[in-house]
């Protein structure tokens, strides 16, 4: 029972991080039908921003985690920059395939650009602690603060995002553009501006994910986002890409698969199981768990 509970919490913690990253993939995909392969690297950008700004925050007498505010801003700007410099011009001229290849190129560019910065370089950096260490006991299981914060923060962030997309004007505009660009334009919605806002939000979420991931695994390196991003992308597809609740569900599913396969089967096979789940879902329900073709009456 103790092992089970522990595994469950670990899965929820991992899943919360995946869900936040998956949201970035799914929101961008929903609005411009592009798989933004550079999204994983936004986590890396967030990670390094945290690494460099945490000491500043601490020196200013603030808690270490407040650095995430700066990381969110930096990531949002990088996301906006990537859209403006690379994706928008390509989208105007090229095909979906051109955009996809551009996304892969942006991913490699960000990783290598980071490495070229002298203060970063090829060697991993180790981040300090963000949250108070320790935890408390529940039913014989130690629940550390990092796990609790991770789950709670991502739940709150996702709730805020949901309210934002449902209740605000900009959120509604995002849903309109993702559903029907032509009709959105006829309503007076600027598609380009809405896409930029989507990039900013998605990248900002990656910074929050970076905080929580690094709180658990403090090593920061330039390809930090590659596998992490890939698995979050799998989570987005498993949940149903383009669907916001799908990304949340997919993230939790992938987190649980990872933690349970680690605890009960083999820690070296966890990634195998993650991708196995992807194949299974694609075979049984190609549009993802929550994905469906909306039937329209004529």
């Amino acid at each position: 029972m103790g092992v089970f509970l522990q595994t469950l919490f670990v899965g929820l913690r991992l899943g919360s991080v995946y869900a936040l990253i998956a949201l970035g993939y799914t929101m961008v995909y929903g609005i411009i039908r592009l798989i933004n392969f550079a999204h994983g690297d936004f986590i890396m950008v967030g990670g390094y921003t945290l690494f460099f700004t945490v000491p500043l925050m601490v020196a200013a007498g603030l808690p270490a985690w407040t650095a995430v505010v700066i990381a969110v801003i930096v990531c949002a700007l990088v996301g906006i920059g990537v859209e403006l410099i690379a994706y928008r011009p390509v989208r105007k001229k090229g095909t979906n395939m051109t955009a996809l290849i551009t996304a892969i190129a942006m991913s490699l560019l960000l990783e290598n650009l980071a490495q070229a910065i002298p203060a970063i370089g090829p060697n991993p950096k180790i981040a300090g602690t963000f949250f108070s260490t320790g935890g408390f006991q529940i039913a014989g299981v130690t629940l550390d603060y990092v796990t609790i914060y991770t789950i709670v923060i991502s739940a709150v962030v996702m709730l805020l995002l949901y309210v934002f997309t449902q209740k605000t004007k900009i959120g509604r505009a995002m849903r309109c553009v993702s559903e029907d660009k032509g009709a959105a334009i006829l309503m007076g919605i600027s598609v380009n501006r809405t896409v930029l806002i989507t990039f900013a939000i998605g990248s900002g979420l990656a910074a929050v994910a970076a905080l929580m991931y690094i709180a658990q695994y403090p090593s920061i390196y330039t390809t930090l986002g590659s596998l992490l991003g890939l698995k979050a992308f799998v989570a987005a597809v498993v949940g149903g890409i383009g669907i916001v609740p799908g990304a949340m569900l997919g993230g939790i599913v992938i987190g649980l698969v990872e933690s349970f396969s680690m605890a009960y089967i083999s820690s070296s096979l966890t990634d195998t199981f993650v991708f196995l789940i992807l194949i299974l879902v694609l075979l049984v329900k190609p549009a993802g768990i929550l994905g469906k073709n909306v039937g329209e009456k004529v």
Partner: peptide, 10 residues
């Protein structure tokens, strides 16, 4: 527009 183009999920 032709074909209504209402926002089906709203």
């Amino acid at each position: 527009p032709e074909g209504r183009h209402v926002f089906a999920r709203m």
